[in-house]
């Protein structure tokens, strides 16, 4: 597992800011401005993480970076997994889009934009995906209230 870390650090020196091994999973924290470079490297040989299983975000309002986007990579060759993480920033959260590396990121990034308001630079089609196009606010942010939405059609009951 530490081999993967060494390979990434060797190819992209300075890009890895933290490496965590927890419960048998390896997580590499990547500097936001170097994310695309690391993504390109991880997708090609020798690591060959050809499949981006999942891309999602978690909100930590009390932390300076606030939005932590996680990329779950999977290698079809040996079945290993790697998680990349990057902080998008609190005020105008933004990260480079990885659609050019893994086309599947298109909808995942749209979902993160829809739910958290994280902007992905150079995304080909960044608009809402699950919520209506004219929705205001980003529902999965921690400060977005649960049940704050009026229930329609209750008067008919």
């Amino acid at each position: 597992m530490s081999e993967v870390r060494a390979i990434v650090e060797g190819a992209c020196p300075g890009a890895v800011v933290e490496a965590i091994e927890h419960r048998g999973e390896l997580t590499l924290g990547i500097r936001a401005d170097r994310l695309l470079e690391v993504a390109r490297f991880a997708a090609a040989a020798p690591l060959a993480f050809a499949l981006l299983s999942d891309l999602t975000c978690a909100d930590f309002p009390e932390l300076p970076g606030r939005f932590r986007v996680a990329y779950h990579l999977f290698s079809i060759e040996d079945g290993s997994r790697l998680r990349l993480r990057a902080w998008a920033g609190a005020d105008s959260p933004e990260l480079p889009s990885v659609v050019e590396v893994w086309p599947t990121a298109n909808w995942h990034e749209r979902e993160v934009y829809d739910m958290f308001g994280v902007h992905f630079r150079n995304h080909p089609d960044l608009c809402r995906i699950l919520m209506p196009l004219d929705w205001e606010g980003h529902p999965l942010r921690r400060d977005y209230p649960l049940g704050g939405e009026e229930v329609e059609f209750t008067d008919a009951v």
């Binding site: 050809a50 499949l51 981006l52 299983s53 079809i76 893994w102 086309p103 599947t104």
Partner: peptide, 10 residues
């Protein structure tokens, strides 16, 4: 197949 993998199809 490679396009399917790129699109995340499983």
């Amino acid at each position: 197949p490679d396009e399917l993998v790129g699109l995340g199809v499983t």
